[in-house]
Design a protein around this nucleic acid. Structure first.
Lengths: 144, 144
DNA sequence: GTTAAAATGATAAATAACACTCATTAAATG
DNA sequence: CATTTAATGAGTGTTATTTATCATTTTAAC
């Protein structure tokens, strides 16, 4: 998993790398992430946010991602063979569905039971991830 | 993808060689993949094979991977956030365990029951992948 | 409004995985 | 053995993703 190295070098890690200013770009990016309700790639974010923040650059997207990650308000969503997406932190444990048509990722709730039983002897289980593959409603021609 | 039809496909799937010469390098790489019994990265393959094939270059590893993929004797194993590994084809349906200490991937048998129950309405399920995370026996200090 | 500095946008640079090039090596065949 | 030509190794090129640089803009506190 992605591990952002911390900044706790001294006794007091008082230097929180928070955003100090509320800019239009940052607000728009954060709103897009909240409203999407599914993991977005940096490019997804750029495209969605540019409608409300003309001229937005990709660097600002990456900077905002980094800021929100260190703030703890954003988490990485890694899907096999894919570049990382990001979604807002704080959701309860869930998994993801990737559409083979549009490649978009969707949150799914629930969790397979007895996943611990899959763990072979001698292995210590600490976490798991399930990815479902198929076709999403829009790509099957169904209404949203 | 390269598609070479210059061979008459025999009755048996194993008898459709795409490589024309049996070289030391290729033999060693294939043996490493068979003996590893777990997915290997190109770099893993390089390191393992160099012991038996001195001077082996990374290009040959990639070429052999490509050859075996088109032969159908090798399949990709994609783990979230990781570069692809490769394992020999023909294994029955299984999933993987990644050790958080050494990052190695291990095959695990079995499959969570009722996985289609996780699929939300309107989605068509076509496949799934489960990745377990934790610590492998060697990294817990247990004997192999 | 003024002002200091944080944030931005454009772009260069770093990273990583992998493919391509080509002179040389070495299998397979006779 | 000699021949032919696929395969190799070393290096270069490519593509995609992400980070660093820096002049300029913009926020937030006065």
């Amino acid at each position: 998993m992605v591990d952002d190295k911390s900044y706790s070098s001294g006794a007091f890690a008082e230097n929180r790398p928070r955003s100090k200013r509320r800019t239009r770009q940052r607000s728009v990016i954060q709103r897009m992430l909240l409203e999407a309700n599914r993991p977005l790639s940096p490019h997804d974010i750029l495209e969605a946010a540019q409608a409300k923040a003309p001229g937005l650059g990709i660097a600002t997207v990456y900077r905002t991602i980094h800021t929100m990650m260190t703030e703890g308000t954003l988490v990485t969503v890694d899907i096999p063979g894919e570049a990382p997406r990001y979604e807002t932190a704080g959701k309860e444990h869930h998994h993801h569905f990737q559409c083979r048509e549009c490649d978009d990722i969707f949150d799914i709730q629930g969790c397979p039971p007895d996943i611990q039983k899959l763990t072979p002897k001698g292995f210590r289980l600490e976490g798991h991830q399930v990815v479902l593959y198929g076709v999403c409603p829009p790509c099957t021609g169904m209404p949203t």
